[in-house]
């Protein structure tokens, strides 16, 4: 294996180095070093930035900012991020969680990207040196993105309004059959006043279940009233097929698990 690693102290210089073909950013390395070990010759050099700010978690006034190098383990143990802990703990086993970064999860192809599913439901903002953009825009363009993500920002959800579910076959740490995150606001009488639902493994990257979100508005979370939302959950999906499950199977079980998440 020949992989040249270059470490920069300035984000600007690292971004410039990333423009050279064959160069990738090194986050926790769980995907990019794995690819190199597997003989992926598309990656010939790696860059990283040794700025401790990239590993910082800031929570204030209901706003959260996670540096791109923050690990899943750091999110999972942070006392103010309890609402997000289930999504962070869903990623890999303990050693993977000590390495896997928030920034890397944004780029992880399905069946990976469980944490990015949570960030999509939270309508996170993705921050780069050039500015900020909504996560949906970021995910759509990530294949051609040549810029280092420095942080993600979002409003801290109230624990009761944020739900996350990962379905896997091997417990407790198998890869996803699917994952679902939902941010739901309910009126005092239990009627859904806003819904944002994100799905993992239902495309090559996290996507929103927009038809289901719409169908949920004005409903109470009962078996009967959520039925139209569950029927709409499959609209616009193109699930992946991998050794864990076929696209057909993933599409079949999606409404079942969405139902469990909503009724739970």
């Amino acid at each position: 294996m020949s992989l040249a690693l270059r470490t920069f102290s300035s984000m600007k210089d690292a971004n410039a180095a990333l423009q050279v073909s064959g160069t990738r950013y090194l986050g926790g390395g769980t995907l990019v070093v794995r690819a190199a070990n597997e003989g992926d010759v598309a990656v010939s050099s790696l860059v990283r930035v040794d700025d401790p700010g990239l590993s910082q978690i800031a929570v204030s006034g209901g706003k959260v900012r996670l540096g791109a190098s923050v690990t899943m383990a750091a999110v999972a143990r942070h006392p103010e991020l309890a609402a997000l802990a289930p999504a962070a703990r869903a990623v890999g086993g303990p050693a993977i969680r000590n390495m896997a970064t928030v920034g890397g999860n944004l780029f992880a192809p399905a069946p990976y990207g469980d944490f990015a599913v949570a960030l999509l439901a939270l309508d996170a903002t993705v921050v780069t040196e050039g500015g900020e953009m909504p996560i949906e825009t970021f995910l759509a363009g990530r294949d051609t993105s040549r810029v280092i993500v420095t942080a993600v920002g979002f409003s801290l959800p109230r624990a009761e309004s944020f739900r996350f579910l990962k379905v896997s076959r091997v417990k407790p740490k198998g890869v996803s059959v699917l994952s679902i995150a939902a941010l739901l606001e309910l009126a005092p009488d239990g009627t859904v006043t806003s819904a944002r639902i994100a799905l993992g493994c239902m495309a090559d990257r996290p996507i929103r279940a927009k038809a289901a979100e719409k169908a949920l508005l004005g409903c109470k979370l009962t078996q009967q009233e959520i039925a139209p939302a569950l029927a709409a959950a499959g609209e616009g999906i193109a699930p992946i097929t991998d050794p864990v499950a076929s696209a057909w199977y993933r599409a079949e079980v999606l409404p079942v698990h969405l139902g469990r998440l909503l009724l739970n």
């Binding site: 390395g29 794995r34 597997e38 383990a73 050693a95 000590n98």
Partner: peptide, 24 residues
């Protein structure tokens, strides 16, 4: 496995469990 999946290469770095096959 050199893929992060088996854990046989696990070491402790600064008190945390890590996979030495995926660490440069």
């Amino acid at each position: 496995c050199h893929q992060g999946t088996c854990g046989a290469c696990s070491v402790i770095i600064d008190g945390e469990l890590r996979l030495s096959c995926l660490t440069l």
